[in-house]
Amino acid sequence: ALRAVIKVTLLKNEPTGKPITLEGLFVGGSAGSAEGKLMQSHPLSLCNTSEDERQESDFISIVKLESPERKVPQCLPLLHKARLALERGAQAVIFDVTDDVNAKFQLPESDSLLRPVVLMQAADAEMLMELVNRNEEARVRIDIKREDPKWPHYD
């Protein structure tokens, strides 16, 4: 799967602030670029029965997935949740899968994801969630990570 580069700039530091660079993994078939304001979505907000208010501007949703032991009602398969978030206007969706390592198996290669869906975990995901927790408004830019070409070894 293609890797994603996620550059995060705190709105209070714009325009001069140096972005924080993090990494994630694109869900197959959704790799691409996106930019927007970071907005948290509660896992239950991505169910058919609930509607998140329409955000006014470009936003990127971040969803912290809980460990299965927490028995959060699943209401929809993860792929449908990702699609629902995009249909509600998200420019991209980031899933923090740190506590739900099997989430990636619920997100197979798909051509039905019209915009980027990225899986993040561990330190990179925690950095992002800490910003959310402190309600520090931030802009996020997602791009495909360019891998350095591996030159053949010459003697």
Partner: peptide
Amino acid sequence: LTCSDYNGCLSCKPRLFIFLERNGMRQIG
């Protein structure tokens, strides 16, 4: 009934309603 630091409430005690409260960029139960 169950909750987490980032998402707030994940489920409620009987008879209570879970409300997804938006506060700036955060959305907690």
